[in-house]
C-alpha cells in the first residue's frame, strides 16, 4: 500500500484536471462525508442520497475543467455542485408526486433525526451552532441552502414580506460568519 498523500488545494486541482485517479481517491476520501451529509440533508433518504452522490462525483469529475479558482474554493464549488444536483433531484421528484410544502416539512425536521451516525464531533459542533441560531434563522438557511427555495417561496412559507426575508437571511448568515470565519 502507498502512504496517504496530502495535497494542497492547488496541487489537487492540477491533478484532477489531469484526471489523476489518486487525486480522485483523495478527493473522495476527504470530501465525501461532507458532500454526502449535505445531500442527505437535501434528499432525506440515504439510499437516494447515495445515488445522487454518485451523480455528483461524476459531474465534478467531468466538469473539473470548468472549475475556476478565482471564483472560490474547490470545496465550495464541489459542495455547490452536489447541493444543486440534490435540489434538482428532489424538485423533480416532488413535481412528480406531492406538493413541495409537505415534503419540506418532512425533510427539514429541526432536530434532524436520521443523522445520528454522523461523527460525534460534528454533532457537538452542530448543536453548538444550532444553539446560537434562532429557530427562524436556521429555518431560513435550511430552506435556502438545503431546499433551494427562492426568496418568494420563503416569504410565502414563513408568511413574511420579501424585504424581511432578505434582512433575516442576511442576519442569519452574519451569525454563521461570526461563528465560523
Amino acid at each position: 500500500m502507498h502512504a496517504k498523500p496530502s495535497y494542497t488545494e492547488a496541487q489537487l486541482i492540477e491533478l484532477l484536471k489531469l484526471k489523476n485517479q489518486r487525486a480522485y481517491n483523495y478527493l473522495y476520501d476527504n470530501y465525501s462525508a461532507a458532500i454526502y451529509g449535505v445531500i442527505c440533508k437535501v434528499v432525506g433518504d440515504e439510499d437516494e442520497a447515495a445515488d445522487v452522490m454518485q451523480e455528483a462525483f461524476i459531474r465534478i469529475w467531468r466538469n473539473i475543467e470548468q472549475y475556476n479558482a478565482d471564483k472560490g474554493r474547490l470545496f465550495t464549488w464541489m459542495l455547490n455542485v452536489a447541493r444543486n444536483l440534490a435540489i434538482d433531484y428532489i424538485r423533480s421528484a416532488q413535481s412528480r408526486k406531492s406538493s413541495k410544502t409537505e415534503s419540506l416539512t418532512e425533510s427539514t425536521p429541526l432536530g434532524a433525526p436520521g443523522y445520528t451516525d454522523a461523527i460525534k464531533i460534528d454533532h457537538v459542533g452542530l448543536n453548538a451552532v444550532l444553539d446560537k441560531l434562532t429557530v427562524e434563522q436556521k429555518k431560513i438557511i435550511d430552506m435556502a441552502y438545503f431546499q433551494g427555495y427562492t426568496q418568494e417561496e420563503i416569504a410565502e412559507e414563513l408568511d413574511m414580506p420579501l424585504g424581511t426575508v432578505k434582512t433575516r437571511a442576511r442576519a442569519a448568515l452574519m451569525k454563521l460568519k461570526h461563528l465560523f470565519v
Binding site: 462525508a33 474554493r73 454522523a118 438557511i141 460568519k177 465560523f180 470565519v181
Partner: peptide, 17 residues
Amino acid sequence: EAEEALVSYGVLHSKTP
C-alpha cells in the same frame, strides 16, 4: 467569507457514506 461560513455550516452535517 460568506461562502466559507455557509460551507462550514454544511460540513457540520457531515455523514460517512
